[in-house]
Write a protein that binds this DNA or RNA. Sequence first.
DNA 1: GCGTCGAAAAATGAATACAATCTTGCCTTG
DNA 2: CAAGGCAAGATTGTATTCATTTTTCGACGC
Lengths: 239, 239
Amino acid sequence: MVNHNLDGAVEKVIANSEFTLHENLVAGLRQLVIDGVLASGQRIPEAELCQRFGVSRTPLREALKVLGAQGLMQLRPNRGAIVTPLDPGDILPIFEVKGALERLIGLSAAERANDMDIDAMSALHLELGAALQKGDIRQYTELNYAFHKRLSQIPRNAHLRQSYDDLQQRIWRYRFLVNESFSRVADSFAEHEQIMIALRARTPLDLAARLESHNARTCEAMTDAARGAAQDPRFGAIA
Amino acid sequence: MVNHNLDGAVEKVIANSEFTLHENLVAGLRQLVIDGVLASGQRIPEAELCQRFGVSRTPLREALKVLGAQGLMQLRPNRGAIVTPLDPGDILPIFEVKGALERLIGLSAAERANDMDIDAMSALHLELGAALQKGDIRQYTELNYAFHKRLSQIPRNAHLRQSYDDLQQRIWRYRFLVNESFSRVADSFAEHEQIMIALRARTPLDLAARLESHNARTCEAMTDAARGAAQDPRFGAIA
DNA sequence: GCGTCGAAAAATGAATACAATCTTGCCTTG
DNA sequence: CAAGGCAAGATTGTATTCATTTTTCGACGC
């Protein structure tokens, strides 16, 4: 049998009783997919997951349906679910939409940001700088995610935040593509510098433009990396 | 007991064997919510829906979880699900995001539209004109939905199409707000005229600008209508 | 009369049981 | 030896059952 390395993290998630079992299952499974523990294209064996999570098939399947509806898994009738395979061709479309939303985030955030927002962003920006100094690209990537997520909350538009987060999670699965390109990370940080300046200045058009530009460059870097890594096993065996 | 008027339409949906039972249930339930058959804030009685759809609670609950994750229903632990109440305060945020996506749709559609796309849009535009002539505002509203949906497909970006469709469905629940304002419908058609011109001319910036403007005006009209109809029972009893 | 407590009824959450479908492996057959 | 088919096992889909929680409603006390 295949070892999925599910031990540890998951059980903790499930034990979190602040949320319902269903919510924990959805979050836990999503994490497994996004973190790549369940590989792209991999078959999802219900029985095994049930054992791991310590629940029966009923709640597990409810969670699978939710992830299926969100596009993270493909539910094939009578043939089980598979983790939606990563597709290099998806990178550009996702970034296109993400860029459109980031433009709105920029326009809106520049107008609605309060001091707490800017402090929080500044703190994240500092941490990003520290991660860059240390050359810890993995941590930089995670902080980068948090940076943009926090920014998306400034407009205080729940629909915007959710739509944006959806896209961020989709692209997050491809993050291994940039994990090693140090030069891009340095450029990225320089762009963040400009973003912070525009945010502090509260200039909507400028902030929006810088975000769009940052988005486009990140997209370019990922697309390039995908070209080079088309044979990467993480792009999914079964497809 | 309350009569939910579920007869008819639903059973047909379920009988559609091209899709799985689960898919039909999700689509059927969503339709009930979007069409207002299950009113805003209304409690969802599992047992009754099971009878109506002729299925057991297991697949029905799977569908409810999906709709809950999509924000159409609120799943309250141990207390059943309710249809997410309509909130006039949601109109503006939804339109903001929708506007950002329509801008992208415009930019992209102007570049990627082929003759078939433009023919299809022209046909819908003609139908819209006919509905306006007849004064059939209900039909106009439905065709308007189809018009924008078809437009969103022109960029051939699945992520864009899906994100946009999500938002369109959310706002569609508020459509009763414009069902009676004839003057707005006439204005709307005039704006569509300009949109078609820009689409045929394939001028990205112009098309994007006209779509954004159209979106903003529609938002304004709905917001106004919401102010006047704050007491409308459709805004949800329970809340 | 009003509020509170408590038991019965109803509804939800999860596990188990059953049915239908697919997969696997072996056997047959050309 | 290859191809097809059939039966056994495994897996998925749905129904049913059991456990837990909430709601209802009537009795009781203030």
